[in-house]
Amino acid sequence: MINLRRTLYQLRFTNLAYWRNPSSALFTFAFPLMFLVIFTALLGRHTFMLDGRLVHQTTYYVAAMASYGLISACYVNLAMVMTFQRDQGILKRVQGTPMPSMAYLAARVIHALAVAALLVVLTAAFGRIVYQADLPTGMALIRFVVMFLVGALSFSAMAFAVSSIIPNADAAPALVNITIMPLLFLSGIFIPLGDHAPTWVAWVGKLFPVRHFAAGMQSGFLGTAFNWSDVGVVALWGAVGLAVAARRFDAEPRV
């Protein structure tokens, strides 16, 4: 229980530093909201067929940007921050105190999850107010929350794994983005894939976690089918990430 108390206290400072750091607050918080406004304004007027349903693109983008917000907070930001903190020796310094490493890292993950939740709520509120987008309710809401939590924990685990592979802080923005940007495009986050995407693109979506995660998130907004297998694939990637992180993640700066 003492660790929970420490984690909660740590959260306060993690949060202070997050909002004061322009690269965290701007790139990971403001970007998803900015994309939401741009995409819905430029491309939101149309409808298209998805899984045999007629879907409004505004609603589609509300769902897609909610997914992007979570990935941004739990994967992109966390992977970069952990690499910076390791490189600057901040993690090493914390390791030299009685603060349990797990309590410190837990505060990071909980904070990322809270930022993701805030992004999802803001995105949904924007969609509702400006475009009368549909929001998940009832059982769909519960399934949505499950997908959100599994996604947040899994993408956080993958963030620690990728951070453990990044050699130094200078390489962090490039390497983190190269692992995620192509997937965001190929998984229908920025551009809806519709039902006629090339086969190889469909395969990328099947193999990697982003498409599955986005499918789970969008079912609550669009009324498309919710497949527990999507949750399973995301969780599997999370488990692999956790295994890699547990083996490789290190508090010491790389020389």
Binding site: F13, A17, N21, Q88, G89, I90, T97
Partner: peptide, 13 residues
Amino acid sequence: GIVLQSTGIDQYL
């Protein structure tokens, strides 16, 4: 207490 040569500290606090 440990004061190392090159351990960083959060710049934004």
